[in-house]
Amino acid sequence: MRSPRTRGRSGRPLSLLLALLCALRAKVCGASGQFELEILSMQNVNGELQNGNCCGGARNPGDRKCTRDECDTYFKVCLKEYQSRVTAGGPCSFGSGSTPVIGGNTFNLKASRGNDRNRIVLPFSFAWPRSYTLLVEAWDSSNDTVQPDSIIEKASHSGMINPSRQWQTLKQNTGVAHFEYQIRVTCDDYYYGFGCNKFCRPRDDFFGHYACDQNGNKTCMEGWMGPECNRAICRQGCSPKHGSCKLPGDCRCQYGWQGLYCDKCIPHPGCVHGICNEPWQCLCETNWGGQLCDKDLNYCGTHQPCLNGGTCSNTGPDKYQCSCPEGYSGPNCEIA
């Protein structure tokens, strides 16, 4: 077999650049994923090309098998939009790539799955459409700058595939050579959905506090709520009108309100015997008056200043008058 000629994957630097851009600016990249293909086995019993010639040398006159050299087999892949009637021409609109030389006439790579040499990765940054057309071609490398490479066999497949970690196996069982391969579509990290176009990256910072479920939905951490999980859940009972919080379990009062639940107004400074319904009010309790509710309107009842059976009459805020019984006098009937 001729010395292998290595063929790198098509578009790999571009895919790395796209992945970097997506990581830095995830909101700009609407989708991100990759179409993967792995060659599993190849069977070319006679070492022939599609045109019937030998990959190298002439045929044995007896059994008609190619004798001089085995094929240097590598694969090309073209991925494009779905076609009900597949045409070989036209651009590979979803991507293209190739393997290096991975074997001779016949080989089996099932035991070495995950080997990069027999895998082609086609990254995409558009919403995966699920339906596709795939062209797979086996080629013989001439290892010659003058002699062109020659095609051994080709296969085409049109179908639908959803993103999954599971592989789907396909076979080419007609023509001079048979080969088996597997395909799958996977979303990149933080991308979800059938189109790999739903973005969700767990975070716990100013912009949100959430994890992501298997469908890419945000699940808020304990103590947080809202579409972006950036609204803290305040202390139970915290007034929704007069209290708020920036951290879970907190209850910060608005100006003019106080209390554990921010449901108590702050009265006017200096208010003595008054209450409030709104901040800075001083609504006097019964029998109290004045701007600060510090004037006693029922001095008689509060202090009972009249002595010796005198009768007390309220005459104004903090004022009274005693009517003394016979034989007593003085402001409080204290003089006998």
Rank of each mutant, 00 (worst) to 15 (best):
E228V: 11
F179L: 12
E278V: 05
S164N: 05
K264N: 06
D140G: 13
R184L: 02
R184H: 01
E228D: 11
K80N: 15
I161L: 14
P13R: 01
E137K: 00
F199C: 06
K218R: 14
T87R: 00
S112C: 04
S244F: 06
Q43K: 01
L297V: 10
G316S: 07
H242P: 05
K27T: 05
D204G: 12
Y320C: 06
C253R: 01
R12P: 04
M42K: 03
H178P: 08
P202L: 07
N105T: 15
G243A: 04
F126Y: 02
Q214L: 11
P163H: 01
C234G: 13
R9W: 15
N46K: 03
P317T: 10
V45M: 10
R85H: 06
L24M: 08
D72E: 13
C220S: 01
I183N: 00
Q83H: 13
N51D: 06
E38G: 05
V185E: 01
C78Y: 05
K319T: 05
L307V: 07
W139G: 02
P129L: 12
A138E: 00
C265W: 00
C306S: 00
C322G: 01
P163T: 04
G216S: 02
N53K: 04
L135R: 05
Q168K: 03
R59W: 14
P61T: 10
S125I: 08
D296A: 04
A88S: 12
F94L: 11
R119P: 03
P279T: 03
G290V: 02
M221L: 13
K246N: 09
G270V: 09
P61S: 14
E285Q: 02
C324Y: 07
E228K: 07
S93R: 13
A177G: 12
S112R: 10
E48K: 06
N230S: 13
L292V: 04
C271F: 00
R203G: 12
D116G: 09
P305T: 05
I183T: 01
N277H: 03
Y74N: 00
C54G: 06
K198N: 11
C300F: 00
P240R: 13
R165Q: 05
C54F: 14
P148S: 12
D250A: 06
P305R: 06
S131F: 02
H178Q: 03
K241R: 13
R235L: 05
P163S: 11
Y261C: 10
W128G: 04
P305S: 14
F126I: 04
D189Y: 09
P331S: 15
Q258R: 09
G316R: 10
L283R: 09
G114S: 10
C71F: 12
L122P: 05
G89A: 10
L283P: 01
K110N: 12
I233M: 14
V146L: 10
G8D: 14
D213A: 06
C312F: 00
C29G: 05
Q304K: 04
G175A: 07
N230H: 12
P123L: 07
G226D: 07
S96L: 06
L170Q: 03
H273N: 06
N298H: 00
R201C: 10
P279A: 14
D296E: 00
L134V: 05
N51Y: 01
W280G: 12
Q34L: 09
C212W: 06
C71W: 15
A31G: 02
V136A: 02
P163R: 03
N53D: 06
N162H: 12
K80M: 15
A88V: 12
C284F: 00
R184P: 02
E70K: 08
G103V: 12
G47R: 04
L18I: 15
R2P: 05
A177P: 04
V176A: 12
L20Q: 02
P325R: 14
P148H: 07
G289C: 08
G57R: 06
V121G: 09
V101F: 11
S329A: 10
R201S: 07
P129A: 06
D296G: 02
C265Y: 03
A155P: 03
C306R: 01
D149Y: 12
S41P: 03
Q83R: 13
D263V: 04
Q214K: 04
G89V: 10
G310E: 06
T133P: 07
S112T: 11
W288S: 00
E222K: 06
G33V: 01
L247F: 05
Q182R: 13
Y255C: 12
S141Y: 08
V45E: 08
G208A: 07
L21R: 01
P129R: 10
E36G: 00
G104R: 05
S125T: 10
D263G: 11
I183M: 05
D63Y: 13
D213E: 00
R5Q: 14
T186S: 09
F124S: 00
L122Q: 01
R64S: 06
D63N: 04
V101D: 01
A26V: 14
S323P: 02
L109F: 07
C322S: 01
G114C: 12
S164T: 10
G104V: 05
I102S: 06
L135P: 02
C271Y: 01
